[in-house]
């Protein structure tokens, strides 16, 4: 077994915990939305099956019926996402600790908590790079747009703008990879913050960005597969509903393990 897979296997409990935390957080905005949609069609003879009717008659009615609940739902979603952002460093450092030393969850959690603020420090230290990506996302397409303003071809114009986004996207990918590697270095006890970040930067020679992007692509594919399979299996009835629940959650778990594999690889890279 490769060292990466061995690490993933050794940290199964932590990975599962991260998955459970994500699922619980997802429940916060999902429950009121699903409940509102189901309530809207609760008097329909087809029950929640009406939401899937061709033409979207009842789905549109249900969304229209949300009315003031939209604001509540938006607030819950924003709060959940902020909570995810706050919990993120703790979960990631705990996860990395478990992946690094195959520790018990409680010990990993304690190590994660110890490095919580340093992990936030990594994010703050690297934030100028993210800022640069955002700046480029606005500025470069703007400049390219001016340069190609007179081209008569809409296709050429739009493709040029799309190409102009590439530097910003490349820097964003660089930032995301560096961010994970720096936190992996931190988990390895990489000393002061600047040394951690410098050490992480050194690992770029080993084609880290493509490795990061491959987990991202695989994770996205698994997420899309969950929606497609969930839709295909959702034919009504307890058994089908159970199948949908199992399949979507198994795929969410798989996506978490794909990320665990990348984090384990990051730990190997910053050795």
């Amino acid at each position: 077994m490769s060292p990466v897979l061995a690490r993933v296997r050794g940290a199964s409990v932590a990975t599962f915990t991260v998955y459970v935390c994500g699922a619980l957080l997802a429940l916060a905005p999902a429950m009121p939305l699903a409940s509102a949609l189901e309530n809207a069609v609760s008097d329909h003879p087809n029950g929640s099956g009406a939401l899937y009717a061709p033409g979207g008659v009842w789905l549109m009615e249900a969304f229209a019926e949300l009315g003031g609940a939209w604001a509540v739902l938006a607030n819950v979603t924003v709060i959940t996402l902020l909570l995810s952002l706050m919990l993120g460093p703790l979960l990631q450092m705990t996860w990395l600790a478990a992946l690094l030393r195959r520790r018990r969850l409680a010990d990993a959690l304690s190590e994660g908590a110890r490095r919580y603020f340093l992990a936030i420090g990594v994010s703050i230290a690297l934030s100028p790079l993210l800022g640069l990506a955002l700046l480029l996302l606005v500025a470069v397409p703007g400049l390219v747009g001016l340069a190609v303003a007179s081209t008569p071809s809409d296709r050429t114009h739009d493709l040029a703008l799309l190409a102009a986004c590439t530097p910003a996207l490349a820097i964003a990918a660089l930032w995301a990879t560096w961010h994970d590697l720096a936190r992996a270095s931190l988990a390895r006890g990489g000393g002061v913050l600047s040394a951690v970040i410098r050490g992480a930067l050194a690992t770029f020679q080993r084609s880290a960005v493509p490795a990061y992007l491959s987990w991202l692509a695989l994770g996205a594919l698994v997420g899309i597969a969950a929606q497609i399979l969930g839709g295909a299996l959702d034919v009504g009835g307890t058994l089908a509903s159970l199948c949908v629940l199992l399949v979507t959650q198994l795929l969410a778990l798989l996506r978490t393990f794909v990320r665990a594999r990348w984090l384990a690889a990051a730990l190997e890279r910053v050795r």
Binding site: A23, L25, S84
Partner: peptide
Amino acid sequence: APSRAVLSRVVALFHAMIAAVGA
């Protein structure tokens, strides 16, 4: 009629969103 798995599918959507910004 038998209910559909609305909650499961909405949870899957939000879970993916949270994974993107969280750990």
